[in-house]
Write a protein that binds this DNA or RNA. Structure first.
Lengths: 270, 270
DNA sequence: TTCTAATTATCGCTATACGATATCTCTTGT
DNA sequence: ACAAGAGATATCGTATAGCGATAATTAGAA
């Protein structure tokens, strides 16, 4: 019975008829449990968070440790192994979009003189894939590879706004809207209203919702199916820039860059 | 029979009595096949390179695609998925040594005024875990997370020099010493001689062996078992600096930093 | 077109991964 | 110091998940 419940958490592979490999799925799920909030996890914590049987955790951790994907410290806490880094950076090299769009981002950067970010969607977050930094404003040390929530970033919000009401609502069910600053939107109703507004005008704004003193405007990037896959955002310190003037002055170059990026993703609209 | 041969490639988990999970191992092995030389691989190529049965590849790729760890382009070539990035950067955040040693690397950087790199060993390569860049000299765009061969880097050579004759020889059996420049050492015998020299003086030198115009000196970092686990290196453009004077002037601060790093790794020598 | 190579789908067998349980190792409180 | 409890390891019989073979399909090349 408990076993059934466990299985239920991993939906069957539906994209193809090939049977999915359960232990591989579980192993990767386990790796994903290590994040900013919980970089160190013990066996029982892993069991609790994953829902997997403790014996399963034993086998998974042993295997992952052997391969260098997990390490264990003297307190028997596990953390991700250095080996994972190599994979991570291999992806950065591979990402076609990133290399293709880079010169255009540089152009954008030269024109606007603000921090330029290229985001891609991963699960329920956005990951910085390219970044040209102007001002050091954030509390956080953002860099390429950093992943951020969608509900408090301009990039995430514009992406969500184009995913459709249904999907946005499901997103809100999944995540908890933890307030990063007093400006963080934590009310789902209010958030959905702003998504509508964002979709209508074609861009989303973040006013100090992730980090005090930091504002941004983001425009989505679409693939060939017209689905938002990522976004480009301009970020600036709140005290030196008025968002309205930033938008008025720079929305066109931003639009241009995001359209080019969309084209690189196979989008051919207009 | 063929099955047996396949199994033989994955040695049994020996660190603990727990049985290893074959399909998890295979899945991760598959991901590791994607590297700088071969960022895109088709199913049959994967089968060839891994030695796994084609049916196995089917299952592995399907599972990994579902989870977002692999993507497939329109030509049915697979490449690593964006999801891997998140894991990669989570490691960077987690790495204790990196955060602990950072201020000391900054000190070192201020004193020497050369590019400072912190490397950790991963498999048969060294991975840049922290980097303070002074001169833009390399052909390659090195950055945090980049992985490099050991046989043509100061960091890799000093690490190898302290791993013991036996292990160094095994290393040489595994890797092919592809020449990056005319200065790259490609003769195993000559290389082993230099390792001996490096061990005796306590540091290794790289004279344009990876990239023309780039020199470096590296010192190893040891863990509590006196095993080299990484290295700190100073890099500079060859035409503006004489290696002998660099070493004479800066070997002491470099030694100091690498000793502190060793202490952070639990090493308590002297 | 035909031939070849690669990809996708199907299936029965058995090694494999499963969960339960027992043992061992800690920490914590009395 | 000892007991109690929680957590980590080891063991084991069983069911099933993953295995390889092979067939069917598609895509390219000649």
């Amino acid at each position: 019975m408990r076993m059934e419940a466990e299985r239920a958490e991993i939906p069957a592979s539906d994209s193809t008829g090939v049977q999915p490999l359960r232990s591989l799925e579980k192993g990767l799920r386990l790796l994903e449990l290590f994040n900013r909030e919980t970089p160190f996890l013990t066996m029982t914590e892993l069991a609790r968070r994953s829902g997997f049987h403790l014996s399963t955790i034993q086998r998974l951790t042993a295997t992952l440790c052997n391969l260098g994907y997990l390490k264990r410290d003297e307190n028997k806490r596990y953390h991700l192994g250095v080996k994972v880094i190599k994979l991570g950076f291999q992806v950065m090299r591979t990402l076609e979009l990133r290399t293709l769009i880079r010169p255009y981002l540089q152009d954008l950067f030269n024109v606007v003189g603000l921090t330029v970010n290229l985001f891609l969607t991963v699960d329920d977050e956005v990951v910085i894939v390219e970044r040209l930094e102007k001002h050091r404003i954030l509390q956080y040390n953002l860099q390429m590879g950093s992943s951020l929530p969608m509900y408090c970033t301009a990039a995430g919000k514009t992406i969500l706004s184009f995913m459709g009401e249904k999907r946005a609502q499901n997103y809100l069910k999944r995540v908890s809207m933890k307030p990063f600053t007093p400006h963080t939107i934590t009310d789902p109703g209010k958030f959905l209203k702003e998504l509508t507004l964002s979709r209508e005008r074609g861009y989303a704004i973040n006013t100090q919702e992730l980090s005090l003193g930091a504002c941004a405007v983001g425009m989505a990037i679409f693939d060939k199916e017209e689905m938002p896959r990522g976004a480009i955002s301009l970020a600036c310190p709140a005290q030196h820039f008025k968002m309205e003037t930033v938008i008025e002055k720079y929305i066109d170059p931003l639009k241009k860059a995001s359209r080019i990026a969309s084209q690189f993703m196979g989008n051919s609209k207009e």
